[in-house]
C-alpha cells in the first residue's frame, strides 16, 4: 500500500463535478488534465469552470461579489484584473434564478442615491453575447477613445452633439437616458454591423 498523498484528495465542492464544455475546450487548448487539476490545483479547476458574472469598475468589485453571495452563498468569486473593467467570474456559475436575483439586487444598489450618481448597472446584449456591467460612467473630458458609457451630459441635445468630430470611424455612439440623466453609449461599429447582418440588413 502506498502512503496517502494529500494532493490526491478532491475538495468536497468538486466531488462529482462534471466539467463544462467550455472548461473541456480550454483544458484541451492548454494541454491540461482536468481530473488531475481537480485533485492537485482545485482553484485552477474552478476558474476553468467559472463563468463571467459581471464586469465591474475595480472599486465596485467587492460590492458586486457581496451581491453574488447574497443570491448564491456557496459561490466562489474570482476577479480578472483589467482596465477600465474587471471581470468577476463565479464558480459554480449562477443559475437563471440566481442571476435574476442578482439583477434585482444590483438595480437596487444603483438606485441608492449615493451609488446611483456614480455608477450604473445594465445588461448588454450584442452579437458577442450577453454581459452585465456595474461600472462608473466615464466623464466626457476623461474619455480616451474607448468603448464606454460617457456622461452625464446636461441634456439629450448635449449627449447627441458630443460625438460629432470625436469618434473614429470604428466607433459609434447613441444618446442614452439613465436615471433621469443623459449619457452617450459609445460602442464598436463592428458590433453594430454584425447586429445588422444578424437581422438581415445590409450593414455596408
Amino acid at each position: 500500500m502506498t502512503p496517502h498523498d494529500p494532493s490526491d484528495v478532491v475538495p468536497e465542492d468538486l466531488r462529482g463535478h462534471l466539467p463544462s464544455r467550455t472548461a473541456r475546450e480550454r483544458a484541451d487548448a492548454a494541454g491540461l488534465d482536468l481530473d488531475r487539476l481537480k485533485r492537485e490545483r482545485p482553484d485552477e479547476y474552478r476558474i476553468l469552470n467559472a463563468e463571467e458574472l459581471v464586469r465591474v469598475s475595480p472599486d465596485l468589485a467587492d460590492a458586486a461579489a457581496d451581491l453574488a453571495w447574497q443570491v448564491a452563498g456557496g459561490a466562489r468569486i474570482f476577479r480578472v484584473p483589467g482596465t477600465p473593467a474587471e471581470r468577476l467570474l463565479a464558480f459554480p456559475p449562477l443559475d437563471a434564478a440566481a442571476l435574476a436575483a442578482f439583477d434585482d439586487l444590483a438595480a437596487d444598489l444603483v438606485a441608492r442615491p449615493d451609488v446611483g450618481d456614480l455608477a450604473y448597472y445594465r445588461t448588454v446584449r450584442d452579437p458577442h453575447g450577453e454581459r452585465r456591467e456595474l461600472m462608473h460612467p466615464i466623464a466626457p473630458d476623461a474619455w480616451a477613445g474607448e468603448v464606454a458609457l460617457v456622461g452625464p451630459f446636461d441634456g439629450e441635445e448635449a449627449a447627441k452633439a458630443w460625438p460629432a468630430g470625436r469618434l473614429p470611424a470604428d466607433l459609434m455612439a447613441d444618446p442614452l437616458p439613465y436615471r433621469g440623466r443623459w449619457y452617450c453609449d459609445v460602442f464598436d461599429a463592428e458590433e453594430a454591423w454584425l447586429d445588422a447582418r444578424a437581422s438581415g440588413e445590409d450593414g455596408g
Partner: peptide, 22 residues
C-alpha cells in the same frame, strides 16, 4: 481573442467577508 487574459492578469479569488463562507 476577445478580452484576452494576460499572464499577469490571473484571476484572484475574492475573499468572503467574515461570517460568510464561500
Amino acid at each position: 481573442a476577445r478580452e484576452p487574459e494576460r499572464a499577469d492578469a490571473a484571476p484572484v479569488e475574492v475573499a468572503p467577508p467574515p461570517g460568510r463562507t464561500a
